[in-house]
Design a binder for these strands. Sequence first.
DNA 1: TCCATTGTTGACAAACACGATCGACAAACC
DNA 2: GGTTTGTCGATCGTGTTTGTCAACAATGGA
Lengths: 158, 158
Amino acid sequence: MRTTAASEYGCLALLAIGERGEGWCKRQEIIDRFAVPGAFLEQILRKLTAAGFVVSRRGAEGGFRLARPAAEIVIADVMRAMDGPLAPSRSVSENFYQPSPLEASPAYHQLFRKVRDAIAAILEQTTLEDILDAERDHHRKPPRAGRRAGPRPAPRRR
Amino acid sequence: MRTTAASEYGCLALLAIGERGEGWCKRQEIIDRFAVPGAFLEQILRKLTAAGFVVSRRGAEGGFRLARPAAEIVIADVMRAMDGPLAPSRSVSENFYQPSPLEASPAYHQLFRKVRDAIAAILEQTTLEDILDAERDHHRKPPRAGRRAGPRPAPRRR
DNA sequence: TCCATTGTTGACAAACACGATCGACAAACC
DNA sequence: GGTTTGTCGATCGTGTTTGTCAACAATGGA
């Protein structure tokens, strides 16, 4: 039940790019920050551009920038663009359906659909902005064992 | 975020074996019922045996039988035995941990862990007995478009 | 104008996992 | 003994994943 490295790297790249805000984020910055193989990242950035998550600019002072507000970039969409289906089996995928012997068992079919829905529910509800916020939060308070107290900051939902 | 065919076939095999109750279920029966490639299924049955889910008997009238009550066979364990980690990334796996660049981002790391937990929650809670029950249920009432009483039959989309 | 920087493109290739097959063998039953 | 059925180990093609490379194009600055 694994994602690919491409999906992980893609998400991380968006994080690095998003943190730069209006500025242009160079590929090299991403490489330095997350220690991902540069030549591979290049391919991933291409995909992110093609999928419309980021825009690019060449030349000195070039780089990548988000194509739209972070709040409008849904993680589920990012992973689908990189990886294909979120669903554990294509036979229960909304967007990439394909038949499979699994369908011969209604019970399993429904179980797998439940798994798919659970995954989708989380990933569809999370935007890049949520990630950026959480990352900033985490920077402010060094990683402690206990999770914060107090009246939670109102879960940000799109 | 996919499972392998081996995992699907393994689950289906257990279903077929479980349905035979005390009797010995031959490989051929499983092949006939689910249209899975026989030689491949053999490998899967070997794994299921090695993992202690089923026991086997050779010779004419041989076959496979559950090694313990269906209620004690947890689907999560089955899939782990077939596929490895349930987690979407090894960096958030409880049982198969490995480092990954993802850990450089606490926000993503937590998000992925949430996904892992959601998957595990469903699969750890479901036993083969649940599947057997659901399958029987489904047999009693022929596959109709509408789910029981309720207002609209909720358009079946895939 | 020319150069350094940076993204763009397409092709390529190594490594690995997946899905599947085969042949020889071992037990159980008739 | 022969048939049925599971066991084992090896192998293998294919596709995907991960990663590299070289040539090219645009941008900004000297």
